[in-house]
């Protein structure tokens, strides 16, 4: 019995090696923020065409880029999703490994929300308030040009117009693309509202980065992992806490969660779409041109994603919380897909 089992196994391995030569499903990796949208497109694509449904792994933007840029060949992914643009270093990595032609497609926008339980009062904060509440070191409140360990305990300490509740913010860990975007869009902007700190960006870039990017570690900012549902649950249990998460989670939980106004603008679909809500970021996917023709269906998948019925103003992705681009911008990327325009950096 043992013998037959072993030979069966050897046979299995041999066939595995044979089958590995012919992958017939598209392999997609990347951002967990794009995942809910890409999966919907993939599912529809699988149902409406004769191609197999693409397989999508949620690895985070950075992890996806690493896999995507590791080479050309069937064992490497065909597409990677990203909640930020590809970095120069990642692009170079790609080139080095033979991934020379990459098609860049922007699919839309996602808003980042500072949310709280509906039982709490709706906050209206500026980005400066958020920075002062969350940075590890803040400009000395006495006005001198030095950084001190964050002394603020309540929102009222930060800004007298805000309620006197303890600062307690649940948010994503540093590995998350949401956190990257939050740092760039909120913390940096809030940081630069102090003139001498802004000047530091030119004189001492590293010190400026440390001042603006470092989040406090005294318990006011709580890293809640990448699970946004968990943050939503915790907010419901603790009305004093705030949470940082993607707009689609606010959209789905609007009966229990509200979003704070940031710089006076509420996180609403239309306000994010027209760019007046300040904390929104573009979402992308990148395609390996070398795989088009080898792996069946890549071109058709790109076309399905960039169809107006999907990422357009009234497309089915908007039902899932994607904020669509303006028509002109959409046409630009539809053309890029059509012409397979390679990204140059």
């Amino acid at each position: 019995m043992r013998k037959s089992a072993t030979s069966l196994l050897a046979l299995g391995l041999l066939t595995a090696a044979g089958v590995a030569e012919a992958r017939d499903n598209i392999m997609i990796v990347g951002s967990s923020t794009v995942y809910p949208f890409a999966t919907v497109v993939a599912e529809n694509f699988g149902k409406t065409t004769d191609y197999k449904t693409p397989i999508i792994e949620s690895t985070g933007s950075g992890g996806g880029m690493k896999l995507f840029c590791s080479g050309v060949g069937e064992q490497h992914p065909d597409v990677t999703n990203a909640s930020r643009r590809i970095k120069k270093s990642e692009f170079d990595q790609c080139q080095e490994n033979g991934v020379t032609d990459i098609i860049e497609v922007k699919v839309g926008y996602d808003g980042i929300v500072l949310g709280s339980s509906k039982e709490a009062e709706q906050l209206s904060v500026t980005r400066r308030d958020i920075y002062l509440a969350l940075a590890k070191e803040v400009p000395n409140p006495d006005g001198s040009e030095s950084l001190v360990a964050n002394p603020y305990m309540t929102w009222a300490d930060v800004n007298a117009d805000l309620p006197a509740i303890k600062i307690e913010v649940l948010g994503p860990p540093p590995t998350s693309g949401t956190r990257d975007a939050f740092t760039e869009l909120v913390m940096e902007t809030g940081c630069d509202t102090t003139e001498w700190v802004e000047a530091m960006a030119k004189s001492d870039k590293d010190a400026w980065k440390a001042a603006c990017h470092t989040v406090r570690e005294d318990g006011a900012y709580i890293e809640a992992g990448e699970n946004d549902n968990l943050i939503i649950q915790k907010l419901q249990e603790n009305p004093d806490a705030l949470g940082i998460f993607g707009f689609s989670f606010l959209d789905q939980n609007a009966d229990v969660i509200q979003g704070a106004l940031i710089d006076g603008v509420a996180p609403e679909f239309d306000l994010i779409a027209d760019g007046s809500y300040p904390v929104s970021r573009p979402l992308y996917f990148y395609v390996k041109t070398a795989h088009i023709g080898t792996i069946p269906g890549i071109e058709e998948y790109m076309a399905a994603f960039t169809d107006d019925a999907a990422f357009g103003d009234e497309g089915y992705l908007t039902d899932k919380g994607l904020i669509p681009m303006a028509a002109e911008e959409r046409q630009q990327f539809q053309a890029a897909v059509q012409n397979k325009t390679s990204l140059a950096m």
Binding site: G12, T15, A16, V19, N25, Y35, T39, A42, E43, G46, K52, T53, I55, I56, E57, S58
Partner: peptide
């Protein structure tokens, strides 16, 4: 090893995703 993924098609052999 990539098994935490969105996979719609039901696998029919150990070699299907």
């Amino acid at each position: 090893i990539g098994m935490v993924a969105f996979i719609v098609d039901v696998p029919t052999s150990p070699l299907d995703p």
